[in-house]
Simulated assay, not measured.
Amino acid sequence: MNKKSVTITDIAKRANVSKSTVSRVINNSTPVNPEKRDAVLAAMKELHFEPNIFARGLASGQSRTIGVMTQNIGSPFYDAISQGILTSLATTDYSPIFADGRWRAETGIAAAETLLGRMVDGLIVVGSRLPEDELDELKDRVPTLIVGREIDGWENLCLFLDNERAGYEATKLLIGLGHKQIVHISGIEDHQDAIRRKAGYRRALEEAGLPVDPELICDGEFDGDSGVNAIENLLNKGIKFTAVFAANDMTALGARLALYRRGIRVPEDVSIVGFDDQAESAFFTPPLTTVKQPANEMGVAAAVAMIKLIADEEYKLPNLESKVVVRESTMARD
C-alpha cells in the first residue's frame, strides 16, 4: 500500500481497533491499553505509516515546533548555542526551525515573522539586535526566551552571561602577568556584549591604578579584519603596548596575523587574550588564551525552559558563568 494513501481507517482495520484508539495513540493524548497500543504501532510499521506532523498540530492546537532566531548563523558562539538547542530537543517530540536574523534589526524582524508564519509553539531568540519594543511584541504573540542578551522586565526569560565580569577577568589576567599597556579591540559599538566587555576592561585597569588610555582602545566588528586593522594602526602610529584583549577569538586571530607580519612574537613580545573559546582557538599558533562561554549549555538550558514555558510549567533559568582558559598566547612580562 502506498504510504501516502494510508489512513487511520486502514490502521484501525489492520490492528482490529477503533479509529479513535488509533487517533489517541498517534496523538498520545490519553492512555491506551498497552496491547492495543502495541497493535496500533505494529500496524503503523507494517503499513509504513508516518504521522503528518502538521495535521497533528492543527488537531492539537500545537505545531510541535520551536522557532530559533539566531543573530548570525556561522558565528561559532551562536552556532554552539544552536547545537545545544538541537541536542536538547532531540530527546523530545519538538523540532526546531532556524532563521538567521543577522546583525540588522530589520533582518531580525523579517526572520521572526517567518518563524511565526510557520505557527511555532515558542520562539528562542539567540542574541539579536531587535529593539526591545519589537521583542515585547513577539513575547505577546508567542512564548519567547532570549539567549545571550539581557533585557529589563524579562525576568526569567533571558539567559545571559556577565560580560562585564568576563572582560574584567580577562584584563585582570594580563595585569597579573605584569602588563600595563593593554590594547582592547572592541566589538560592534552598540552591541551589548561589546559594551560590557569594554566596561570590564576599564574596571580592571582602574582597579589596578592603571590609566585608561583612549589610544589603546580600538573599535572593531567582532571579525578578523578588526584585529588586523587595529594592530596595523597602532604600529603605524608608534603606540607601544605589550598585550591585547580582543572582543572575540576571530578578532584575536586577526591581531595575531598583523603581529606576525611585523615580526612581533606572541607571547614573547605581545600577549593576546581572546573571547569565546571557539573550537579552533586551541590550535592557533600559539594556542590562544581566551574566555570560554558555556554556549552549548546555554542552548540546552534554553530548550528545556522553553518546553516548560509552552506547557505553562514552572522553571528557572540557570546562572551560567564564563571562565578564562589560559594557553600559550600569554606570558609574564619582565
Score class of each variant (00 low, 15 high):
residue 18 S to C: 11
residue 88 S to E: 14
residue 273 V to C: 13
residue 36 K to H: 13
residue 137 E to G: 12
residue 33 N to P: 01
residue 119 M to P: 01
residue 195 I to R: 15
residue 193 D to F: 08
residue 311 A to I: 05
residue 80 A to L: 00
residue 232 E to C: 11
residue 173 L to S: 00
residue 73 I to N: 03
residue 232 E to A: 15
residue 66 I to W: 00
residue 261 R to W: 10
residue 102 R to I: 00
residue 107 T to A: 05
residue 285 T to D: 13
residue 238 G to H: 04
residue 202 R to S: 09
residue 286 P to K: 00
residue 255 A to M: 05
residue 60 S to E: 08
residue 232 E to S: 14
residue 172 K to I: 02
residue 309 L to K: 14
residue 86 L to V: 13
residue 32 V to E: 01
residue 14 R to T: 08
residue 202 R to A: 13
residue 78 Y to R: 08
residue 27 N to Q: 13
residue 55 A to I: 10
residue 324 V to E: 06
residue 214 P to K: 02
residue 300 V to L: 11
residue 22 V to I: 14
residue 74 G to L: 11
residue 241 F to I: 03
residue 115 L to T: 02
residue 186 S to L: 04
residue 225 D to Q: 13
residue 154 W to S: 06
residue 38 D to S: 13
residue 297 E to W: 02
residue 198 K to F: 10
residue 285 T to Y: 13
residue 154 W to Y: 02
residue 118 R to C: 01
residue 68 V to Q: 07
residue 48 H to N: 15
residue 46 E to I: 06
residue 179 H to A: 09
residue 304 V to G: 02
residue 263 G to M: 09
residue 228 V to C: 13
residue 204 A to C: 11
residue 162 D to S: 12
residue 294 P to K: 04
residue 85 I to F: 09
residue 220 G to L: 00
residue 268 E to H: 14
residue 330 T to L: 03
residue 315 Y to P: 01
residue 9 T to N: 08
residue 70 T to F: 00
residue 123 L to Q: 02
residue 174 L to M: 13
residue 181 Q to N: 14
residue 319 N to P: 01
residue 143 P to E: 05
residue 263 G to Y: 01
residue 133 D to A: 13
residue 316 K to S: 14
residue 182 I to P: 07
residue 242 T to F: 11
residue 302 A to S: 12
residue 101 G to M: 07
residue 206 E to G: 08
residue 101 G to N: 03
residue 46 E to M: 04
residue 137 E to Y: 13
residue 145 L to V: 05
residue 57 G to H: 11
residue 166 A to N: 08
residue 149 R to N: 09
residue 71 Q to N: 04
residue 286 P to I: 07
residue 212 V to W: 10
residue 49 F to P: 01
residue 251 T to C: 10
residue 308 K to L: 06
residue 172 K to P: 01
residue 246 A to R: 00
residue 257 L to Y: 14
residue 245 F to V: 07
residue 306 M to A: 03
residue 126 V to Y: 03
residue 148 G to I: 02
